[in-house]
Structures are given as C-alpha cells and as structure tokens.
C-alpha cells in the first residue's frame, strides 16, 4: 500500500522536524499521566501496605473487592468522574470537566485501582522478618513501613511502571472527561482515536510510534526490575 508507506515517512518527518501540534499532544500525555502516577502510586502503596500488614474486620472482603476492580474498564471510570464533575455533579462547581485536571483525576482513579491490589500482592508475599527486624531494632511503625517498601523497591517500582503504561495508553477516561480539545486536553490516545478518521494518518502513525517505543522501553525496564527483584 502506497498510502501507508508515504504516511509513515511523513510521520517520521513530523516527529523529527519537531511538529508543534504533535509534540504538544505528547507533552499533554506525559504531564497528565506523570502527574497522575506521582500522586496515586504513593498513596496506593501505603494503602496496600496497611491491607497487607494490619488486620482489621472486613479486611479480606475489602482486598477481594479491590482485586476485582483492578482492571475496571476505563470508560466506566470516565463515566463516574464525568458524573461527579459535570455541572450538576457533586463537584460541578469546580468547573473541572474538560480540563487536564479532570484527566489527571480520572487517571489517578485508574492507577490507584491498579496499584493497590498489585502492590498488595508484592507486600503480602514478602518476608515478614523485614518488618519484625525493623520494629525490634526500634523503628517506629511508619519508618518500618518505609524500610519494608525499600526492601521491595524493585517489585513496587515495577508495579508503578505497569500502572503508568496502563494510564498513558488509555482512551476511555481521557476522551470522556478531557474532551480531546486541541493543544489542551488532546493526548496521544485521544488524538489517535479521534483524529485518524479525519484522514490524519501521518499524525496517527507518528503518535502510535511514540506509544510503541514507550511501551517497549517500559517493558525492557520491567524485565530488568524483575530480574533484580528475583536476584535478591
């Protein structure tokens, strides 16, 4: 197919030449997803730690519920956030719908629901002696928690990277609460999904390439982290 080859060439040209619109879209993706993961991952990991190390009534059912929400469809999260942020919603007065903040909120929810059960798995399977050793050497609970997490840094970082990969590629929430507004809330997935049918193949392919390369890099990183995690 002549059209595809030509479009791919044009895509590479767009990337190299530093096309403003294209790099703006890439920038939106990274700032939204980067912000979301930085906010949600630490909180999610602390919750995962509490679920793994503190027993309280209802802990088991709570863990099961969170496990089943791990891969919640992103459009469902989009719907929920939309309803909360829409003019008649609970937080409608904040006028956040169709802003980057709304996208960040949506992705925080997705990342949070992904990280909690995954990090819980890592923490629950870990050696209890790490916690006991920290405590018997006089560490306060919060410090002992940080120590345990540091011991598991490779596994937990792998969880965070997998979560980042999930939110930077998701379309559903970004479209619903971001609205795909050019040079504002248009990120890589929404641009590919919505602009391609306008015949903008070159841009779609260029963005697709960025995502592919990113996915590849994250996978290599994950593989290395897993290797390190197993070694120790």
């Amino acid at each position: 197919m002549d059209g595809l080859g030509e479009a791919t060439l044009r895509a590479l040209y767009l990337l190299i030449e530093g096309d403003g619109a294209l790099w703006n879209i890439i920038g939106v993706s990274f700032s939204v997803s980067g912000g979301a993961i930085l906010i949600s991952a630490p909180v999610a990991m602390v919750l995962a730690f509490l679920l793994a190390y503190v027993s309280f009534p209802g802990r088991r059912p709570l863990i099961s519920t969170l496990q089943s929400l791990q891969s919640i469809p992103t459009v469902v999260v989009g719907l929920l956030v939309y309803m909360l942020l829409s003019r008649r919603g609970l937080f409608g007065d904040l006028h956040l719908l169709f802003t980057q903040t709304a996208m960040v909120i949506g992705q925080i929810v997705i990342a949070f629901l992904f990280v909690v059960p995954m990090a819980h798995g890592v923490l629950a399977a870990a050696d209890r002696r790490a916690w006991e050793t920290a405590r018997t050497l006089g560490a306060a609970p919060w410090r002992a928690m940080l120590t345990v997490m540091t011991e598991l840094r490779f596994g937990l970082l792998a969880v965070a990277i997998a979560a980042f990969a999930r939110i930077i590629t998701e379309v559903g929430t970004s479209i619903m609460v971001g609205g795909n507004i050019e040079s504002f809330t248009r990120n890589i997935p929404t641009a590919i999904a919505l602009e391609t049918n306008k015949g903008e193949f070159a841009q779609g392919i260029a963005l697709g390439l960025v995502l592919l390369v990113l996915a590849l890099l994250l996978n290599v990183l994950l593989g290395q982290l897993q290797g390190k995690g197993e070694m120790r």
Binding site: D127, R129, A130, E132, T133, T136, T147, E151
Partner: peptide, 15 residues
C-alpha cells in the same frame, strides 16, 4: 521496646 531485641533463627539483613 528499645531494651528488648529479638533475633530471628535466620537473620534478616536489609538489602
């Protein structure tokens, strides 16, 4: 708490 230290059968050393 600070005066009593427990040592595991197999020591756990931090990484």
């Amino acid at each position: 708490r600070r005066e009593v230290i427990y040592l595991h059968q197999e020591a756990y050393l931090f990484d």
